[in-house]
Design a binder for these strands. Structure first.
Lengths: 112, 112
DNA sequence: CTTGACACCTAGCTATTCTTAGTATAGGTT
DNA sequence: AACCTATACTAAGAATAGCTAGGTGTCAAG
């Protein structure tokens, strides 16, 4: 997963993971990696700022706690966030269908 | 299709359209719009520079002609371009599968 | 007491698309 | 003739947002 294929789709992924239940940032990263079969192994510098942005936008709320001496910030989807997830899912469906339609016109190479 | 969901996927789309046969830039734009069901209605300022970039990279070759008084630059996939298309298809498949896997974990909203 | 996993943070860079504006021909309309 | 629309290409700058790279600190294992 190099390149910037993620652009514009990161929020969808984060909201989706958090719609499963509240999690702290590090756990979001782990979950995303596992659920995607190692395809999305995102750096912290990508995920933390994105979570902050989503919270600022009112899509997430957060709460601090301390577990075994380590501080954690646990994020939870707000109603607005849940609504946004639905919209982003819709947009993803439209986008991926459109790509599929463009691709299906052209032939596959001979199994490189 | 607002936002920058396209980032990182534009080359794939252009190569796919051109793998169907040589076309000039304007025709690429039209084709993309039609094939995607109006989802990808890209501005010229997006497509032309991208075609130049692909040609500079050796993925496309171009040829000038004049049709009804208007000059046209017709682009054609090179072998390198065809190889890149295969690789980009693979990458798209991996990407979209990964997104699907992340999404399927979380529940759908109640049909907004 | 050093290493590695856990857990968080931010400033600045970079890549790429989009915006905006311009050139030019052909054909139709008023 | 003047004007508009569709066709067709181009360049320069703005804007977005993810990534790099660096930093803080805790805990458990070797």
């Amino acid at each position: 997963m190099r390149g910037q294929a993620l652009k514009g789709h990161l929020d969808l992924l984060l909201l989706a993971v958090l719609s499963d239940g509240a999690r702290h940032g590090y756990a979001v990263i782990d979950d995303l990696r596992e659920r995607s079969g190692d395809t999305f192994d995102l750096p912290e510098g990508t995920v933390y700022p994105a979570l902050h942005r989503l919270e600022t936008g009112g899509y997430l709320s957060s709460e601090w706690s301390v577990v075994q001496g380590r501080r954690r910030r646990t994020y939870r989807l707000t109603d607005k966030g849940r609504g946004a997830l639905g919209e982003q899912r819709r947009a993803w469906g439209e986008f991926s269908d459109a790509v599929a339609n463009v691709l299906k016109g052209s032939p596959w190479p001979s199994t490189s």
